[in-house]
Simulated scan of single mutants.
Amino acid sequence: MRIIDGAGQWAPPAQGTANDWVENLRVPDLSVGTYCIPAGGVDDQSPHTEDEIYVVTAGRARIVTPDGAAEVGPGAVIFVPAGEEHRFTDVTEDLALLVVFGPAYGSRGTA
């Protein structure tokens, strides 16, 4: 057992960066991280080669995929399959996301 301190908690991006990404845990079959986008910020991520689950722990935004768009806020759980384009837009409140990748982030190579 392991308690993952800080996972899903808001952290402002470092000076000169758009967003904050921290990998909090990594094992071969999954990884857990925290992705933060400040209010008014731009999500600059690319599709991933792993399946992904986001849990919104703070903030509000809109997620856009080829299948549609949805408003999200605290408590929302979002599944994004490997390779699917997705982006958080209209970030109206500092957005903190707990992110779970299966298998571990980047373990399947690049998209």
Rank of each mutant, 00 (worst) to 15 (best):
N24G: 10
R26S: 13
Y105E: 13
D90T: 09
P66N: 01
G40I: 10
A70Y: 01
I63L: 08
E50F: 00
P38N: 02
T34R: 12
A96L: 03
V27E: 12
R87M: 11
L98A: 11
G73W: 01
V32G: 00
G75D: 02
C36T: 05
I63F: 05
R108S: 09
G33H: 04
Y35G: 06
N24H: 15
A104M: 02
L25T: 06
A82K: 13
G16L: 07
V99Q: 02
V64E: 13
A18F: 10
L97C: 01
N19I: 14
I37K: 08
A76Y: 00
A104F: 06
Y105Q: 14
V56D: 02
W10Q: 01
A69Q: 14
I63P: 02
D67R: 14
Q15V: 07
P66R: 03
T92D: 00
F79T: 09
G41F: 10
V72E: 01
S31I: 01
D51M: 07
S46I: 12
D29G: 15
T65W: 05
M1S: 15
P81K: 07
V64Y: 09
T17N: 12
N24K: 15
I78A: 05
H48P: 01
D43V: 08
E71T: 12
S31C: 06
D44A: 13
E93A: 13
I4R: 09
V100P: 06
V77G: 12
Y105H: 14
P28M: 07
S31V: 07
A82D: 06
V64D: 05
I78N: 01
S107T: 14
D90I: 06
N24R: 15
G41W: 09
T17V: 08
A58P: 03
G68A: 00
G109K: 11
P103F: 11
Y105C: 01
I37D: 04
I53N: 10
A18R: 14
G106V: 08
V22W: 07
G16H: 11
T17K: 14
M1W: 08
P38T: 03
L98T: 10
A61R: 07
G75E: 06
P81S: 08
R26G: 03
D67Y: 10
A76V: 02
S107Q: 07
P38K: 02
I4K: 08
L25E: 07
P103S: 08
P103R: 13
H86G: 04
C36L: 04
I63Q: 05
Q15A: 15
G102E: 12
A69R: 12
D29W: 14
V27Y: 03
A61S: 12
T17I: 00
A18I: 10
V56N: 04
I53D: 08
V100H: 06
P38G: 04
Y54F: 14
R62G: 00
V42M: 10
W21N: 13
P13F: 08
P12Y: 05
P28L: 05
A58K: 12
F101V: 04
Y35R: 10
R60A: 11
D67C: 04
G73K: 07
A76W: 01
H48A: 11
D29L: 15
D5T: 11
A82N: 05
G75S: 08
H86T: 03
I53C: 12
W10I: 00
V72D: 06
R62E: 14
G8R: 09
V77D: 04
G41N: 02
F88A: 03
